[in-house]
Design a protein around this nucleic acid. Sequence first.
RNA 1: GGGUCCGUGGUGUAGCCCGGUUAACACGUCUCCCUGUCACGGAGAAGAUCGAGGGUUCGAAUCCCUUCGGACCCG
Length: 378
Amino acid sequence: MEFTIQKRSKRSRARLGVIKTPHGEVETPALVTVATQASVKTLTSEEAGRAGSRLLIANTVHLHLKPGERVVKAAGGLHKFMNWRGPMMTDSGGYQVFSLGFGRDLGTGKILKQRISASITTGQQPKLLSIGEDGVEFTSYIDGRRVFLGPKESIRIQEALGADIIFAFDECTSPAADHDYTARSLERTHRWARVCLEAKRTKQALYGVVQGGKFEDLRRRSAKFIGALDFDGFGIGGEFGDDKSAMTKMIGWVVDELPEDRPRHLLGIGHPEDIEAVVKAGADTFDCTVPTHYARHGTAFTSAGRLDLNQSRYLADRAPLDRKCSCSVCAAGYTRSYICHLFRAKEVTALSLLTFHNLHFFNGLVDGVRRRLKRGLI
RNA sequence: GGGUCCGUGGUGUAGCCCGGUUAACACGUCUCCCUGUCACGGAGAAGAUCGAGGGUUCGAAUCCCUUCGGACCCG
């Protein structure tokens, strides 16, 4: 992998660049489309490309549990397996340490929306998995068997999957974790980062992951440590504070400490209103489930805001999802009325129509950000 | 002519035999939520004078009588 910066903004930390991989180039800033189980859910790989997606991210834990990395490797790797010709990433499974652990226990995401009375302190373990020095043991949600995943295991799996860019195994800490827990978790994530670098035998690009929660000292410490290692790029993970301004501030701390010559990937962020802010804060790429996940729950993102296509009022609405949208769903004449009907009738076509539109909309937003960055407006 | 069973929110049911706080459940409806993914998910709300009328009782969806509607059996 090769990263070249074409332009640095004078108004913000944003920059314009190109990531070159063995499977093609990606202009940055770029949105990475989520394909957890080697599929952009409800779409074919060709359709994802037509919706404007250039770079996909699949998941180590999910593919390890099903179908197993050996099946993917035997098929010729992720690209051939899912018939995707463009660049790909795999996430390391570090997020699953959180989502199957404290995230599940406390019913919270990475962003703390309401105050949580309990806080996570040193020595505490989640209910369904145990986190140790060498990795994490958890129960498979598929067949209930115990599975061990650590930095070595994650790298071995990601090598077999064969994405162009892979991530170091980390612990994504909960918003409820206190300073001491977050600091100790961070030290362990740093030790795991070294193990990942030593374990990797392929030419795949490896990104190290910065953690540190909402704490400025920890974020800066983590960025300095990870930034000093021989990674090809950097992931910024973990929780992102209590609100949007806290999130961009936090990204700023990290970006200030990271080397400038390598790409920065913001893990798991990207509501429409976040995209420009995150680019200005210095992110080159970012992945997010929002366009595809919300589509399957009936939410369309449009230039005029969100629509919930489950609501019966749209049965009478014969407008396209977004009058300003040029995607093949809107342009072909599919109406809100029809898509609303499909959702209420539980027709699966509803899911793919909305997924396609949402992806096109989000990719268009990022295209716009890139254009304005080129013109010096951001 | 004789007999049996059923009738509870939009839909399907539970409760009835052994009467007792705001009639329960599923689906549906409505509102809100979902940021390194859980389509088949989370939280909340609205919605039933328990077919109708009468009786017994401190108290009836529950017991008794009558009546209406539906299904069925025997002649």
